[in-house]
Amino acid sequence: MELQGHERCVSRVPIFSHLEMDELEEVFQRINHQNMKKGEYLFMAGDRSSSLFVIHKGKVRIYRLNDNGEEQLIRVLSHSDFTGELSLFSADEESKSYAEVLEDAEVCRINREDIYGLMQKYPDISIKIIESFAERLNDSESLTTNISLLNSREKLIEYIRTHTKNDKLILTMTKKNLASYLSMQPETLTRTFKKLENEGIIKKINNKTYDIL
């Protein structure tokens, strides 16, 4: 049996990718599908969510607001990425983040009770979720360290270092969102990119692609 559409989406999510075809079909049967427009929210700070959201199409940005009301981008999600995993273990805790749709999106939603049932039946899902938590915690700690200790140039160089593949950097988010992610003003990010170009560290191919020299 060949998986189609949303089923393929589920098969590529790390916490489900190890399952067999018939097991993936069982996961698919527990999913609710949503079509969402740009500017809508999967959830907002203060909401009590009880679902895991998987992005099938489109893009969703996860961000928080600091005490001054300024946005801090956490990550941008696209095809087969997921969010809401914290709600699996904190039923009554309010969300501290916002999940805003950046591009019209198709989203697969799985309720907590269904996830629990799958975890009991297929324990490897629990292991994969823990691995995902560990990876995201590491990313969060690295981001916090970069924001608190590094200057703008060092932040951008560290981002380039960790996101370069085959001597090429391809931005997966707008520079406005990248500036938020790195906790700097968009104008500062633009100047920093230009400085690295002038220093011969990077070469601009287009607005989203750079050769790393």
Rank of each mutant, 00 (worst) to 15 (best):
E85A: 09
S126D: 14
G84W: 11
I15E: 04
N32W: 02
G46I: 13
G84V: 13
E40R: 00
I74H: 02
L52I: 13
Y116K: 03
F82T: 06
G46M: 08
G69F: 13
V27W: 04
H18C: 09
I15R: 00
G46L: 09
S50R: 09
E23V: 08
R75W: 04
R112W: 10
V60R: 01
N111L: 10
L86M: 15
S11W: 06
R12G: 05
I129F: 09
V10I: 15
Q120M: 10
A99M: 10
S95A: 14
F43I: 12
Y116A: 05
S80I: 00
E100D: 09
I115A: 03
G58C: 04
H18E: 11
Y98L: 03
N68D: 15
K38E: 14
A91W: 06
N35H: 05
D114Q: 08
V101I: 14
L42N: 10
N32C: 06
R61I: 07
C108K: 00
T83R: 00
K37M: 08
F82Y: 15
F89C: 11
H33W: 09
K128C: 13
G69M: 12
K128S: 13
E106M: 00
R61A: 01
K37Y: 06
A91F: 13
Y41K: 03
N66H: 11
D104Y: 00
V101G: 05
E26D: 11
D47N: 13
E93F: 14
R30Y: 03
L118G: 07
S49P: 12
K128E: 15
H33I: 15
Y63R: 01
G117C: 02
I125F: 08
I74Y: 09
H18W: 06
S90Y: 15
L73A: 03
S80P: 03
Y63K: 02
I55Y: 03
R61V: 02
K57T: 15
K37N: 11
I74V: 13
S11D: 04
I110W: 03
V107H: 01
R12L: 10
Y122V: 08
A105I: 04
H56V: 07
E93K: 14
I110R: 00
R112Q: 13
S90M: 15
Y122L: 07
P14C: 07
P123N: 05
K128N: 14
V13L: 01
D124H: 06
K128P: 09
M21T: 13
F82K: 06
S17R: 09
R8E: 07
A105P: 03
D124Q: 12
S17N: 13
E71T: 12
R112M: 13
K57M: 03
V107Y: 05
F53R: 02
H79Q: 07
S126P: 12
S50W: 00
M21I: 12
V76R: 00
S51K: 10
D67Q: 15
Y98P: 08
Q72G: 05
I31Y: 02
K59R: 12
I55S: 06
Y98I: 05
E40V: 01
E94W: 02
Q72T: 11
S87K: 04
